[in-house]
């Protein structure tokens, strides 16, 4: 049980996917204009990461058993791309309200490196692995992403009203804000475990 707690705290705070590992920066910068869209994106990422972690972990067992680990990247990315299509179809059919909330963001997640990143990390970096830990790691990493993107979206909403130098408008000031958030998260690195 303590290992699970460590795993969760590590994925959310110490090695936050966005602010410390630099995964999923594109949606982090691109979809963080408003808090509610950021939340929608975050929810979609948590969902896809959780499901993708389980499926890719199971597939990797097959790949390793067959001795063709070198096909890992190509298999994982195809599975993730197909998975996102499937999820889109299912959600559209069974929960139209959820679809209207997530729909726009689902296709965007295909090129979100955080999903492929967590899939590869589950099989290469976790010391004690089983399919449950992989799932927990996936979901927790998604939560870390959501927290980061929500904080940034909150700041950006306030920044709309601020008087920013012309050249800094848009991406540059967002990056500087992200830098300050990352400085805050860097403090979690001191947690000694």
């Amino acid at each position: 049980m303590p290992y699970v707690i460590l795993l969760v705290i590590n994925a959310i705070f110490v090695n936050n996917f966005v602010l410390s590992r630099f995964l999923g920066i594109c949606p982090f910068l691109g979809v963080s204009r408003k808090t509610d869209t950021a939340l929608g994106m975050g929810m979609a990422v948590i969902f896809v990461m959780g499901v993708a972690s389980v499926i890719t972990y199971a597939l990797d067992l097959v790949l390793v058993a067959a001795g063709i680990e070198y096909l890992r990247t190509i298999v994982f990315i195809l599975v993730i791309a197909c998975l996102i299509q499937l999820v889109e179809i299912f959600v559209k059919k069974f929960s139209p309200s959820l679809y209207s909330a997530l729909g726009v963001y689902l296709p965007l997640i295909t090129t979100n490196c955080a999903v492929l990143g967590v899939a590869i990390m589950n099989v290469t970096e976790l010391a004690t692995t089983n399919i449950l830990y992989a799932f927990i790691n996936g979901v927790a990493s998604g939560v870390g992403f959501t927290i980061a993107i929500l904080i940034l979206a909150g700041i950006r909403e306030k920044m709309e009203l601020a008087d920013i130098p012309e050249r800094f408008k848009g991406f540059p000031i967002t990056l500087v804000a992200a830098s300050l958030i990352a400085m805050g998260f860097a403090a979690f690195g001191g947690l000694s475990f």
Binding site: N10, A127, T128, F193
Partner: peptide, 8 residues
């Protein structure tokens, strides 16, 4: 053998 959390 059970590894430490981030070691192998």
């Amino acid at each position: 053998f059970e590894n430490l959390p981030k070691a192998e």
